[in-house]
Structure formats: structure tokens, C-alpha cells
Amino acid sequence: MSLYTLFIEPWTWGDWMWRGTLVASLVGVVCALLGCFLYLRRLALMSDALAHVALPGLVGAFLLTGSTGPAAMFLGALGSGLLTTGLVEGIRRAGHTRDDAAIGVVFTALFALGVILLTAFASDADLDASCVLFGDVLGVPTHAVWTLGGLTLAVIAAIVALWRPLHLATFDPDTARLLGVPVGALHLGLMGFVSITTVASFQAVGAILVVAALITPAATAHLLTRRLHAMLLVAAGHGALSALLGMYLSVWLNCSTAGAMVCVGALLYFAALLWSRKPRDGGAPP
């Protein structure tokens, strides 16, 4: 087996390879960028919650509108994402349940509701719970590529435009609030973006593997960088690289593309972890 058959030939097998890689890279980059802010706000596990509750959002939207079109799906996921954010925040404010458990209670309940509604009332919808979980990179329709591309641009534009308030609100929310930064609105905006991204991504990588795309690049970049803009760049690079290598791996092994991308991403994280543990020359300043 030559390098040519391993690395070049897959690109000649049809445009699904090109489109799959493009979709996966877009998912990797947009999730990595959003994930950095979740990670730094210690909200990594909200991504777990939002990824799960996309399902009840989709099912709810289908039951209300009878359509599985993109508009209904996005609004459904956005609605259930914001509902989850509100419920978790409400339980947290009431103060009788631990924060991590509050997340767990809310998303498992909503996800359970989604699965039941799906099987009991919406079995004729073109939604399959295990496909929602695992995704299908190669079966992504063209319009989804445009959606993902637009979303990536929107996220980058939002980060650039709101750089200073975002930076401050992420690092020190209390000071940001004092200085008049609308921290609550930024938080909701972030959660909304994550919800929409989850829906746009899950056709490709599946709801749960979105969690990996949101958390792992951010955690890797956090180990390797010292400043926020560097962290965002490294995370985006990690997302794109995992997508490309994962694509190759899935072609070679003929296995799940999303799963392969997650495995590659995790390996990159562990490599970064081992590398960052190596004591650097000179040690700490005296």
C-alpha cells in the first residue's frame, strides 16, 4: 500500500470525500471557537446538555409544524436550548441542587421526553434517534454545507465584533457587569449559537459527538496557549485537523467518520497533555 493510495486516492473517489471533509472541518472550526468560551466559563458540560436537548427541540418543532425543514428544525433546537439554559439557571438560583446535577437533571429529562415523543407520536418523521446520536458526515445535503459555512462566518464575525466585551465577560463577569457589558445577553447569545450549531452539526457528527467537537479542541488549546486569541486559533486548528485525519481514518478502516474524528481529537489532546507536562528549559523564574 503506497502513500498515494492512502492519502491521495480517496480524493478521486467522488465529491462526497471533498464535501464530507469540508463539512467536518466547518463543524470542527465553529464548534472549537464556541467551545473556547464555554470552557473558560466552566460551562463545558452545558455543551453536553445542549447537544442532547437538540433532539426534543427537533421533535417538538416537527409535532407543532409538521415539517422537518431547516427553519422549523433551527427554531425548535434554539427553543429547547434556551429553555434548557433557563431551567438550569432557575434551579441554580433556587440553590437547592448542585450545579452539575442541575444540568444533569434537566437534560436527561428533556432528552428522555424527546425520545418518547419521537417513538410515540413522530415515528413518521424522518428522524432516527441513533442517527441523531451518531450522525452521517457523508450523507450531508448541499444546503447544510451552506448553512454551516454561513454559521461559521457569523460566529467569527460575532467574535471579532464583540471581542472586547466577550473577552472581559469571559474572564471576569462581575467586573464586566459593573462596566455595563450585557453579560446575561452575551451568555444567552452564546447558548443560542451553541444550540443552532448543534443542529447544524448533528447531521454530520451526531448530537453527542458535537460535545467532543465543543470541548476537546478548547481543552487542547488551553494546555498549549497563554492568551485568548491564540487559544481560539489553536482550537480552530485542532478542530480542522481532527476533521481531516478523522476522515482519512474512517476511509481506511471503513468505520464511522464522526467516531474517527472524535478519536483523533482525543489523541491530539493527550499528545498536548503529555507535551505540556514536559518541564521546559530554565523552569520557572526565580
Binding site: 470552557y39 463545558a44 452539575d100 467532543a212 481543552a219 464511522s256 467516531g259 482525543a266
Partner: peptide
């Protein structure tokens, strides 16, 4: 790496491995 992120990494990495094995 923060504990909540560590949990998320392990969760998704193992589930991803499961997805690979199941597809095989």
C-alpha cells in the same frame, strides 16, 4: 484541564470509540 472538561473529553472520546467499533 478543568474537571468538567476532563469529564466531557472522556465521555465523548469513549463514545466516539464506541461509534467506530459499532460501525465496524
Amino acid at each position: 484541564t478543568r474537571p468538567d472538561a476532563a469529564l466531557g473529553i472522556a465521555l465523548s472520546a469513549f463514545f466516539g470509540l464506541g461509534a467506530v467499533l459499532f460501525s465496524i
